[in-house]
Write a protein that binds this DNA or RNA. Structure first.
Length: 359
DNA sequence: AATTCGGGGAT
DNA sequence: ATCCCAGAATT
């Protein structure tokens, strides 16, 4: 390890204090930091920690505000329906977080007397709460000592200590360093400060070292390798998948939706679709041969980009005079285009409907 | 240890 | 395009 590494570790108290005072002076106004409603503060922190997983602050804020308005406290959330929850999570992604948040609220309500646990062993057992979220809740909601490690903190530590290679390569030494640098007091400020530092100053690209409160002992800065540390992770190539969907519209502007039963986008309403496969389905997709509908096949493929999939959808458009009752059961539902906003629907479905100028 | 979960921001 | 995001659960 480079000599400056030991210097950086040795000045850890200065490092901690600089992070803390920087945070106190630079606090962004984020809704989950509002402590005015003291009794619900831990609940709000918990909700934010579910939403913030792999999601940038800016994206989360409007979802968080709507969510808290709808479910002000843990008790009301524990009584929510999953469909209603999915509707509020619509567009935020990683929908298992919503299901797990509801499960966790129910468990806390039933098994913990409605009080969010204040120890990591209990927290980490709750659905959707892992090593990061359990530590973050302890630190932020209760100002307890816990080693918080998220993507920002991994990057800050890697840069500060000059760990070359990918975050994955250095997983163990990053955790060790995070332990060494962690604080017992003021963890609320320290942990949020580290994350804010990563988000606002020690950014993935072009870090603002001139504004950094801990630049003085930063190993990467001394070696002028701050732009190469950490090394970017090579990502797997996206899968290209294809499917065919039907857009069936009646005279009263109702469309037929189907609830997805797959793991991805589970329980969300979608255009009735084929499986997603590696090559385009050539034969005409007629999901309801008994109705003998005439379909107009879309010329273009509608592309929907996931983080790990490029999905291309061929649309089969059909008009029908009135709702076909045979198709109304638990999985299929006729939905008025005006009321589509009251159902959790996939963005794929919504974007296709927009393209047809139906919504 | 790898992969699967979404969607969008930033560049 | 590419990388990343206050990661967790599953394979």
């Amino acid at each position: 390890m480079h000599r400056s590494y030991h210097e950086a570790i040795n000045s850890k108290v200065v490092f901690q204090n600089n992070v803390i005072s920087w945070f106190k002076n630079n606090k962004r106004i984020l809704p989950w930091r509002d402590k005015r409603d003291k009794s619900n503060y831990p609940y709000r922190v918990m909700v934010s920690e579910f939403m913030l997983q792999q999601t940038v602050v800016k994206t989360v804020i409007p979802f968080f505000n709507k969510f808290i308005k709808k479910w002000h406290d843990l008790k009301s959330l524990s009584q929510a329906s999953e469909e209603e929850l999915l509707l509020h999570w619509q567009g935020l992604g990683y929908y298992s977080r919503a299901r797990n948040l509801l499960k966790t609220a129910v468990i806390i309500n039933e098994n913990f007397d409605g009080i969010i646990p204040t120890n990591q062993e209990d927290l980490i057992k709750l659905p959707g709460i892992g090593s990061y979220a359990s530590a973050a809740i302890l630190a932020i909601a209760f100002n307890k000592p816990a080693v918080v490690i998220d993507g920002n903190i991994k990057r800050v530590i890697s840069r500060y200590l000059g760990f070359q290679g990918t975050l994955e390569d250095n997983k163990n030494i990053i955790e060790e360093a995070a332990n060494t640098l962690s604080v017992k007091k003021n963890n609320e400020y320290y942990s949020q400060g580290m994350m804010e530092l990563g988000a606002l100053i020690c950014k993935p690209k072009s870090p603002l070292c001139s504004q950094c409160p801990v630049v003085k002992e930063c190993v990467s800065y001394k070696l002028k390798i701050q732009d190469q540390v950490p090394e970017a992770k090579k990502r797997n190539k996206k899968k290209k998948l294809y499917c065919s969907s039907t857009l069936i519209l009646d005279n009263n502007k109702n469309i037929l939706l189907k609830k997805r039963e797959t793991k991805i986008l589970q329980d969300q309403w979608d255009l009735p679709s084929t499986e997603w496969k590696g090559e385009e389905i050539r034969e005409v997709f007629k999901p309801f041969p008994q109705l003998d509908l005439e379909y107009e096949k879309s010329k273009e493929l509608y592309n929907h980009i996931f983080s790990h999939i490029d999905l291309k959808t061929r649309v089969y458009f059909s008009k029908i005079k009135s709702k076909e009752r045979k198709l109304n059961n638990d999985l299929y539902k006729w939905v008025s285009l005006k009321k589509i906003n009251t159902y959790p629907t996939t963005l794929i479905c919504r974007n296709i409907l927009k393209n047809y100028n139906l919504i």
